[in-house]
């Protein structure tokens, strides 16, 4: 039987394979800890903390402005993008995507992974 960690890693592997537009990805806890890290580079700990901060704040703004359930954050940088998906308040899925990525496909695949992660975590 696969461990929870192995299941999470398998979901991330599938997502990464789905489109070359996804550069890195990870799953982070609401405390800002890295649960699974495939982001590349050595910024994991800071990314986990800042990703969790982003998710918390986004959720807070979503509630305050009464725009329904928080779903995702989409940041566009001049060189690449960052996406953050909520996993039912228990975790968040963070992706870095290339400049000019096909966001339609990325979102489709990421939402599938989001559902699978919600069942696993």
């Amino acid at each position: 039987m696969a461990t929870k960690q192995e299941k999470i890693n398998a979901i991330l592997n599938d997502l990464k394979m789905a489109t070359a537009d996804i550069q890195g990805l990870g799953v982070i806890s609401p405390d800002g800890m890295m649960i699974a890290d495939q982001l590349g580079g050595n910024q994991g700990d800071a990314t986990a903390a800042m990703g969790a901060a982003l998710g918390s704040l986004a959720k807070r703004v979503t509630t305050t402005l009464k725009v329904g359930e928080f779903q995702e954050v989409n940041i566009r940088g001049s060189n690449a993008g960052i996406l953050l998906f909520d996993i039912e308040g228990r975790a968040a899925l963070i992706l870095t995507v290339s400049k000019g990525a096909n966001l339609g496909l990325v979102f489709l695949e990421a939402r599938q992974a989001q559902e699978q992660l919600a069942q696993t975590i």
Binding site: D31, G32, A53
Partner: peptide, 11 residues
């Protein structure tokens, strides 16, 4: 901010 205290300390 909606951030829990552990996250604030980590940040």
């Amino acid at each position: 901010t909606g951030m829990n205290q552990k996250l604030l300390e980590t940040l």
